[in-house]
Design a protein around this nucleic acid. Sequence first.
DNA 1: TGCAAGTCTGCTCATATGAGCAGGCGGCGA
DNA 2: TCGCCGCCTGCTCATATGAGCAGACTTGCA
Lengths: 314, 314
Amino acid sequence: MDETDELLSIRAAELYYEENKTQDEIGQALRLTRWKVGRLLAQAKQRGFIRIEILHPRARRLPIERRLREERGLEDAIVVSSAGVASPDELQARTAQAAADYLTALRPVPRTLGVSWGRTLFEISQHLRNGWATGVNVVQINGGVSLNRRAGTAAATAVAIAQKGGGSATLLPSPAILEHLATKEAIESDRVVAGVIDLARSADAYLFSAGPADHTSVHIESGYLTEADVDLLVQKGAVGDVVGRYIDSEGNIVDPALDARTVGLTLDQLRDGHLRIAVIAGRSKHAVADAVVRSGLCSVLVTDEATALHLLDG
Amino acid sequence: MDETDELLSIRAAELYYEENKTQDEIGQALRLTRWKVGRLLAQAKQRGFIRIEILHPRARRLPIERRLREERGLEDAIVVSSAGVASPDELQARTAQAAADYLTALRPVPRTLGVSWGRTLFEISQHLRNGWATGVNVVQINGGVSLNRRAGTAAATAVAIAQKGGGSATLLPSPAILEHLATKEAIESDRVVAGVIDLARSADAYLFSAGPADHTSVHIESGYLTEADVDLLVQKGAVGDVVGRYIDSEGNIVDPALDARTVGLTLDQLRDGHLRIAVIAGRSKHAVADAVVRSGLCSVLVTDEATALHLLDG
DNA sequence: TGCAAGTCTGCTCATATGAGCAGGCGGCGA
DNA sequence: TCGCCGCCTGCTCATATGAGCAGACTTGCA
């Protein structure tokens, strides 16, 4: 394609897309046959001169979703558009909305849904509509009795998802991380707790998020870890946590001792699930999202465009 | 359009524009008739959910050009796209290129073209191709013997435009602004100078730019004015200059005494021309572009998207 | 210079899309 | 409750577009 044709293809594109002329009319204007105009337009598209964007909070990026499925081996991927997003909060809201939509459309409807907790999960619970399902029982898959004033968020999330889905919630009555291994083992041997974990292991689907390994972590906010603890984990290679367990960029547990004091499904138990939906969005979670996908923790990923492109192109 | 339809129109748009499905295929996927899909797509477009952009340095914005013609009474307007512009310099280059293209395509070819000088005009001269016209004679319409080391730019501009157009240049051998009115009158009564100005008044077309009233002005760089002079002009309401003459936001001369010492066509003489092409781009020239269009100094405007939108929407 | 390969052009034909219309449906007022 | 009005649906038909093909043209090489 020489320069003249390139320029003509731009002129044709202007008339076609901005002025809504037919290819025939454009041909008359530019003294070309309509077939030539059609070819110029095809070339303009193919060379990337034409960008078509869908501007809507609910817009998704299907080509990126396809690439995630094909190149990263995911069973499914939902990628929300970042176009026109004003703030990280808005991105988070869009992603939560998409996750809620995905759950609502899920067939067959899971009878038992295992959920983690945190800011993302809470937001998803808020975006779900009443009646999004009928008779979905929700079970917590990791400990989360909050130690600070925001107590109850973890429970509220599970309960909201269950209620709106016409089912009931089974809570895991335990802190996320315990100070002593012995305490953790004692709690897990409790009949109720063990029963909840068994139920969690049998769930039809898991819905969880991941947190970044930094000072904004919900574990610091909740009092389970100190900033110094997290700094140490980062030094050991942590990129973030999944169901309270900190992993490195390959998805390996960075601190086995800490992990042993963490209550809930282990990562291997999580990986045993058939449908494992991870919802991870935002700049700060690029690294942990990569680790989650790389290590096969999720089979379905709900994320934003920028994170998806990070996974694909580094 | 209720929320369900809005969402469907987004899903349909994704499949249509990103996945290149036919409306019929989309209908099958979403369990709709193909006519419904067509209507959803039409609504998505109409509500502005679909944005189509042409990404190319030579891309123009025809709808904005139309609005300029219709709403600001211009005979013609050329608006270059700002999409993907990295720097103000690139915007300037795109606009100069567009001006060169416009001149090249101009029919009938002007026999005599009056030109001003400055950074913009110089750049246009560089973008013109050899043989852009045959036998175009170029005449300077305002004084411009440069006083500093960049001497000759004004002359070089006119000569380059003429040479590449297969014609010759007639230079106006005079400074732009003189210190004393008497000197200016003496120069203008000189046979050669008067002859050039007469020739300029008879030109078939004028090509000129405008400068901002700030310290980047080419008049400061050339030594005709000091920074203090320009500050004073701004205080009097100047928004910029056209052929060396400073105007306010309504296009009126802000300092008649200074104007009287400025050599070249007066603004009224400029307005007598039939084809008056102004080339004005860049953030700093929004105000002066508005003044030029508002006061009818140009009949054709070549500008960038942001400036055009400023003229239209304030 | 002459030939062969590849490219470009303008066509035919099949398909996709948009305009416009008749019937059905729901909402609203009497 | 009935009947009218207006919107929405699914259609027919006209038009716009894309696929594929045969011939012309250019280009590179001997």
